[in-house]
């Protein structure tokens, strides 16, 4: 305020004093109105969840889950969260991680904090996890504190036991090196080797012949031909060869599929014509003239020869 002009008369002074008072009130009112017209800073809503607040002992882990709701335009400043390490003399932060969800104009943060207690107590004692400052960035900086949290800590050593009587727990003796995993692996490798060696031997000795359809068909055909050859024997011989072809093809093999059969099994390519001839014979024998005697142009010896050749081709297949 400017000092009064000495020229002011005594009559003017009360008027000036009143005017000055009115001006001050007006300015105050204007400031108040301007302040109330500004949008209020949003308040984050914080909920703290912990498993329990009693019965903790030395070395226990305490898990806190903070659920914080802020307007969607604000984002958690994660660099402001505590880092794993000692928080104070007796409390460590083991981990601090967070997830966020957005929707309905809100951002919801779930902050999971794991503490570890290293406080030595002689009797049940109250301890306190300090308040956790949180900061959010957005249109403005928003700061909030997760509330401090009180819990009960219990001693592990009986409070009545004098210090001299406490028996320190012994050092850990060395542990023998485990041999069981090595033994397991040796047995597995040995079993695998034996199985593989057995398979190789069976291949070499021809034990897998039973699995060869043409070889089997040839053996049965030879047995069949020991007796007199009747039309029925002939038909049986043709059926044997059909069965071997079906087994090799992995399903019923029809005349029209001979080409594809030979393409997928190149070993049989050189007897393609023979196979086509065989299917023509089969068609005639079973469908065109089922009552006719064994065809003279396809003697059973030819059938036997075809079967033998097929067995030879079959051995070439790896």
């Amino acid at each position: 305020m400017a000092p009064l002009n000495p020229a002011d008369t005594a009559a003017q002074r009360p008027f000036l004093r009143a005017a000055r008072g009115r001006c001050g009130g007006l300015i105050g009112l204007m400031l108040f109105l301007a302040g109330s017209a500004l949008p209020a800073a949003p308040e984050p809503r914080i909920e703290l969840a912990a498993t329990r607040d009693y019965g903790y002992v030395m070395g226990d882990l305490i898990e806190h889950t903070l659920t914080v709701r802020v307007p969607e335009s604000f984002a958690l400043e994660t660099g402001f969260l505590p880092r794993p390490g000692a928080l104070d003399e007796w409390l460590d932060v083991r981990s601090a991680d967070w997830t966020s969800e957005r929707g309905n104009g809100d951002a919801r943060y779930r902050i999971r904090l794991v503490y570890q207690v290293f406080k030595g107590v002689r009797g049940p004692e109250k301890a306190r996890v300090p308040a956790l400052p949180l900061r959010f960035t957005g249109p403005s900086t928003l700061e909030a504190n997760a509330p401090e949290w009180e819990f009960t800590l219990m001693p592990l050593i009986s409070p009545q036991l004098p210090d001299e009587a406490v028996a320190i727990r012994d050092a850990l003796s060395p542990e023998p090196i485990a041999t069981a995993p090595h033994w397991h692996r040796v047995w597995i490798y040995l079993a695998g080797s034996l199985a593989l060696a057995g398979w190789l031997i069976s291949q070499r000795l021809g034990w897998s012949r039973r699995a060869r359809p043409f070889a089997r068909a040839y053996r049965e055909l030879k047995k069949l031909l020991h007796g007199p050859v009747s039309p029925e024997t002939y038909r049986s011989a043709v059926k044997l060869l059909h069965r071997a072809l079906d087994e090799t093809a992995g399903g019923t093999l029809f005349a029209g599929q001979v080409e594809r059969f030979c393409e997928s099994r190149p070993a049989f390519t050189e007897i393609r014509e023979e196979l086509v001839g065989f299917f023509t014979l089969s068609q005639r024998l079973f469908f065109t003239a089922p009552e006719a005697p064994a065809p003279a142009d396809y003697p059973i010896a030819r059938l036997e020869s075809l079967c033998r050749r097929c067995a030879a081709m079959e051995r070439r297949v790896p």
Binding site: M58, G120, R122, V166, R169, L172
Partner: peptide, 12 residues
């Protein structure tokens, strides 16, 4: 055992 011994360390 580490918890127990640590608590004893705090006691002494």
């Amino acid at each position: 055992n580490a918890r127990y011994n640590l608590e004893y360390a705090y006691r002494i």
